[in-house]
């Protein structure tokens, strides 16, 4: 039984039919990637799962429990954490306060302290900059902070929206290494990416989304070889 199951969801922006029946599953311990071009519906899918948008049709279940239609804070508490597109860290809060804000919905202090330690070991840069305001971090550090903050919600499924966006190649490399490391330590990840090449390297399975529909789904390896992906997303001739 899949951990996160999205079943035929339809989402709208007013009259615009943005998601036309998206279905996907994420199993425990997997990295699953959702790749697609700008405007294909990647972020809309994430917003629908996290509850900031509600689907008009379709079901979303987390470990068998229906979560579609729940308010966002309830979904966070059930275990879906996210690092939003464009990072969106709290610029006027310090690094540590940003991370603590991630644990807002939790009350188990010892566990929160453990997770904070975990984040600081995962990203030593953040530990160095603990008391610096979030807005004064570099792009790469902000991405680390956004991921760390999402981890502080102690998610069962971690959704990352374009973690490589706007970063220098070296940093992209580092971020993907961290994603892999996190996964090896047991975190289930739904990775949304435009950088298909990198995403398919770390993911186990992948979905390709085009204009609100899943057009292809397979293991990452097979996707890398597929004609469509190679032409449209990997830039090969």
């Amino acid at each position: 039984m899949a951990m996160l199951q999205v079943n035929d969801i339809h989402s709208y922006y007013g009259h615009i039919h943005a998601l036309k029946g998206i279905s996907l599953t994420v199993d425990k311990g997997e990295i699953v990637t959702l790749i697609g071009a700008n405007g294909a519906g990647k972020t809309t899918t994430l917003k629908t799962i996290s509850g900031t948008m509600h689907p008009r049709h379709g079901a979303i279940t987390l470990d068998g429990e229906h979560i579609e239609g729940l308010p966002p804070h309830a979904i966070v508490m059930r275990g879906i954490g996210q690092s939003p597109e464009g990072r969106k860290i709290f610029g006027a809060l310090t690094v540590q306060e940003n991370l603590e804000m991630g644990a807002y919905a939790r009350t188990d202090k010892p566990a929160i302290a453990r997770d904070l330690d975990f984040v600081f070991t995962l990203f030593p840069r953040l530990a160095e900059r603990k008391f610096q305001l979030g807005g004064t971090l570099s792009g790469g550090e902000q991405q680390m902070l956004a991921m760390g903050r999402a981890l502080m919600t102690h998610p069962r499924v971690l959704m990352l929206d374009e973690p490589s966006m706007g970063l220098a190649p070296v940093l992209v490399e580092a971020i993907f290494e961290t994603i892999q490391k996190l996964n090896q330590e047991g975190t289930t990840i739904l990775l949304i990416e435009q950088n298909a090449a990198k995403a398919l390297q770390v993911a186990k399975r992948g979905y390709v989304i085009e204009t609100g529909q899943i057009v292809l789904q397979d293991t990452a390896e097979n996707l890398r070889k597929s004609e469509l992906v190679r032409k449209a997303y990997l830039g090969e001739m």
């Binding site: 900031t52 804070h73 508490m77 969106k88 804000m101 919905a105």
Partner: peptide, 8 residues
Amino acid sequence: DVAQAMGI
């Protein structure tokens, strides 16, 4: 939006 995503 982010506040919501933190469970607020």
